[in-house]
Amino acid sequence: MSAHEPARERVRGIAMSGLKADLYRVLKYAALIAWAIFVVAPFLWALSTSFKSDPGVVGGATYIPFLEYEPTVDGWTALFRDTSSGGISMQGPYLSSLVVSLISTSIALFLGTLAAYGLSRFTFRAGPLGNNDITFFFISQRIMPPAVLAIPYFLLLRFTGLLDTHLGLILVYVAMLLPIVVWVMVDFFNTVPIELDEAALIDGCNPIQAFYRIILPNCAPGMVVATLLCIIFSWSDFFFALTLTFAKVQLLPPTIVILNSNKVPWWSLSASALVSVLPLVIIAFVLERYLARGTLAGVIRE
């Protein structure tokens, strides 16, 4: 609207746009709320189901406790009970998942940040290939479908006696996570001025000390994002856990999927699903903080 318009025209224009703005606002919140309902629906359904017993399930879908079905905590206590007494004893798989994802995340972070720092600060040449090509080589490993690697992994782990061990799975996860760490961290190190490194060197650090004492603390947000992504990916992996472990090592996702095919009642199935994704929901809260600070923006620009 230009300021040269007659006053009446302008007033009508503002009134129109006021009405339009209201309509827009209503539609906007309607859309946001609709999507929010779609997002939480599976969780609410699982939560409701986890308190049900037979009558609440076999007669068709019910939603509201007390009103439509008599709630019980049987689904939740089954998580801790032994399989012999109708439970699913989740503690073992939970602990295994925790150990495997924390160790593989730590190793991937250690190796990945070192490499990312190297790629950000030094010039590498290998024939016609330079730093960008090496970075791309790291990231491009995400293209590899797990199904393609499953067979050689299976044979190689069997050959080395690492099939169905935590160590074997951790090795595989490190390869899966390394590209993610390098992807996030190269960009972060690029935003930290090289003068900082040089100041540390003048103060008598060697390059490795400069990296640990000065640069890493300055890249804490990037480390947090990389860590969270690694935990999400390793905690959620199903394919490698399914194909490379069987009896001795039991991680969460395969345990729950096997319950699904074993005719375990819906209530304990729902409770186990909720418990296994709970840590990840907490991660979502932290990730949003870093998104709001603009921490992720640089990563995606790459």
């Binding site: 997002v39 359904w45 996702p253 296994s276 994704v277």
Partner: peptide, 25 residues
Amino acid sequence: RFFRVLFIVPMCVTPVVMAVVWRTI
């Protein structure tokens, strides 16, 4: 912030575990 957190949750949770829940849905 409420909407943003909510909208980020699905990508964080284990796909195969959610698939088990979806199967009941």
